[in-house]
Write a protein that binds this DNA or RNA. Sequence first.
DNA 1: TAATTTTAAGCAAACGTTTGTTTAATTGGT
DNA 2: ACCAATTAAACAAACGTTTGCTTAAAATTA
Lengths: 332, 332
Amino acid sequence: MAATIKDIARLAGVSPATVSRVLANKTAFYGPTTAEKVQAAALKLGYRKNTAAAELVTQHSNVIAVVVNSVKTNFSSQIITGIQDTAAAHGLHVIIVYAGITDPEAQRKALLTVIERPVMGILLLSLNLTPENLQLLQGAQTPYCFLSIAFDDGDLPSIASDDWQVGYQATQTLLKAGHRQIGLAAVDSDSHTGRFRLAGYESALRDAGVTPQAEWVQPGVYSYEAGREAMAAYGVTSGLTGVVAGSDMAAIGVLNQARNLGLAVPTDLSIVSIDGTEMCELVQPQLTSVSQNFYDMGAAGVRQLLAPDQHPQQVTPIQVVERETVRTLPVK
Amino acid sequence: MAATIKDIARLAGVSPATVSRVLANKTAFYGPTTAEKVQAAALKLGYRKNTAAAELVTQHSNVIAVVVNSVKTNFSSQIITGIQDTAAAHGLHVIIVYAGITDPEAQRKALLTVIERPVMGILLLSLNLTPENLQLLQGAQTPYCFLSIAFDDGDLPSIASDDWQVGYQATQTLLKAGHRQIGLAAVDSDSHTGRFRLAGYESALRDAGVTPQAEWVQPGVYSYEAGREAMAAYGVTSGLTGVVAGSDMAAIGVLNQARNLGLAVPTDLSIVSIDGTEMCELVQPQLTSVSQNFYDMGAAGVRQLLAPDQHPQQVTPIQVVERETVRTLPVK
DNA sequence: TAATTTTAAGCAAACGTTTGTTTAATTGGT
DNA sequence: ACCAATTAAACAAACGTTTGCTTAAAATTA
C-alpha cells in the first residue's frame, strides 16, 4: 500500500506535522537538517500525497471540472485548450467528464460525478440541462459557468458568442456578395442559441430588403446529418443561391449533399458556416465561416469561476473569415 | 456550506452512523421509520455526499481516469465512448485529463492530477511517456493500461491494433488494385507503432515482389500538416501511384496537397488511410481506410483494469473498408 | 415469567492530511 | 548568569465518511 505522511515521519524520526510542513514548503517551523531528512525519506518511500485527504481538511480544492456534451461538433477541444491554459496559469487542475447530449440520466450521473467531490468550480460546455439537473447543479455550493450557450434567464452565468450577431453577420456575408435567396440550415429552433441566430438571420434579410421565406429555414441539431438532411430538403429547385449552416459539421453536410445533388460549391451554391474550427480548412473547397473565439471562451470561463460575482453573462467576439465557399454574384 | 451527514443526524434525531447506513441502502441496522426520517432530512437539507471523504475511509474508489494526449487526431472520442459505456455498466465513473503530446512537464502534471487522488485505474490514450513519467505511473499503486499504443517492452499492459498488420493490409489494399509504386506518409519512425507499420508495409511490398525505395517513405507525426508535408516532399515526379497515410488527418493532408499539386484522387493518386474515423466519410472523395476498432479498445481497457492479471497485451481486430480513394489500375 | 434471540441504534476508531497551539530547546542581550 | 526572544518540533483537533463493536430494547421461545 502507498506510503503516508506518517510512514515518512516514522522513517525520518519526526512528527507528521513537520513532514506535512516541509513537503508543503512552508517557510517556518522546521530546520534545514530536518527538512533534508524528510525529503530523503519521502523520496525513498516513493511518497505520493493523497490530495483527497488534504482537500478534506483544507475545505478547498484546486481542480476545476468541465462537463462536456458529447455532440459530434468538435469545437470542444479548442475551448478545453483555453480552459487548460488559463487553469494552469492559476495553478489549477482540470478534469473532464462527458455527459450525454440529451439523456437526462446520463447528464445527472455526470453532474453527480463532479458535484460529489471537492471541485473548485464547474464549467458546462454547450450543455442544455433539464430543470431538475439545473437545480442539482445550483444545489451544490460550487461556482459554475455555462460555455458556448446562453439563456433567456439572465441570471445564469454564461460565456458565449452573441448569437443574434452570428446569424446576422453570416447572412450579411452572403447578402454582400449579392445573394437574395438565402437558406438557414441545421439550426435548432427551440434553444436560445437557435432562436437568436434565426432572428439575426431574418433581421439581416429584412435590412437588405428581402422578406424571409418559411421554406428557407430547415431546422436541425447542428450535426453532419442535420446538414445533409437540410440540403436534401432544399433539393435542386429551391432557388437558393446561398445557405448559412449551423455548424462546421452541418456545413460539410450541406456541402456533400449539394455535391450529391449535382450542385457545385460555390458556383451553384454558396455556403457560410458557423464556428470556424479547423474543419473549415480540411474540406474542399474551404468553408467561409463566421468564426467563434472558442479559446477565449474557455479562458473567460475559468476567470469567471475565480471571480464569480462580476458580469454573469459575457460575450466573446466573432469574426467572419472568408475562404472559398461564397461566390460573389454578378450584378444584374 | 454544504450539509453533512452529521447535520442530517441532528435533524433526524439519530446518529451519524445510522444516517450513513440508510443513505448507503445497507440492508440492516435500522428500522423503516428511522429510514424515512433520515431520507426526509437528507432531502430537506439538499445533502450531497462527500465522495472524497468516503473514499478516504473505504480505501477504494470507483472512478477510472483517462489521460489523453491532445494530438489533433480525433479517434479519442470513439475510445472514450467505449470506455464510458463499459465503465457505466460496471458502475464506474470516468474522468479525463489532457496531457501535452510531448511536453514531459505537462505529462507529469496530468499524471499527478490523477495519481494524487484515489482512482481505481488509469487508462492512457496513445500516450508516449518519458521514462521518468512511466516510473511515476508505476510507482502509484494503481492499475493502468495503455490504449492505442504498444511497446517493445512486453510487460506494459496495452491494448492496440496489430501495427504490423495495419501496415501490411493497408499496403496490400493498394497492391491488390495493381499498384507497384507505393508511398508511406506521416508515420513516425521512432515509436513502436511507426516501426511496425513500416515493417508491415515493407513486407507487403516484398511479398508482392516489389523492393521498397527509401524515398517512398516520408515520416511524420500523423497530423494533417505531416500529411501535407509528406505529399509536398513527394511532389509530382515521384512516380508513386498510391500512398498509405498514417492517420485519417494525415490522409486528408496528402489529399489536399495532392490537389494543390494538380493530382486528382484517385485518378492520379490512390490513398489508403489508417484509422477509419468518421472523418473518412466527411471528405471528398471518401477515404478508403484500414479501420481500427476504437470503441472496443476502450471497452477492453476498462475490462483490463478490472482484471489486471490476465493478457497484459491485447490486440483488437482491424478491417479494411473500401471507399473512394483507391483506383484499380488497368493490367498492362 | 425468565432466558434467549433478534432487531435497532449508538459509540468510537479509522482513513491521510493540515494547522493552531503548546512545549522544549537554542540564541542573544545585558 | 539570568531573562527574554526566537526557533524547532511535537501535540492534537479537525475534515466527512464508513464500519466493527457494544448496548439497549423488543420479540421470541420454553
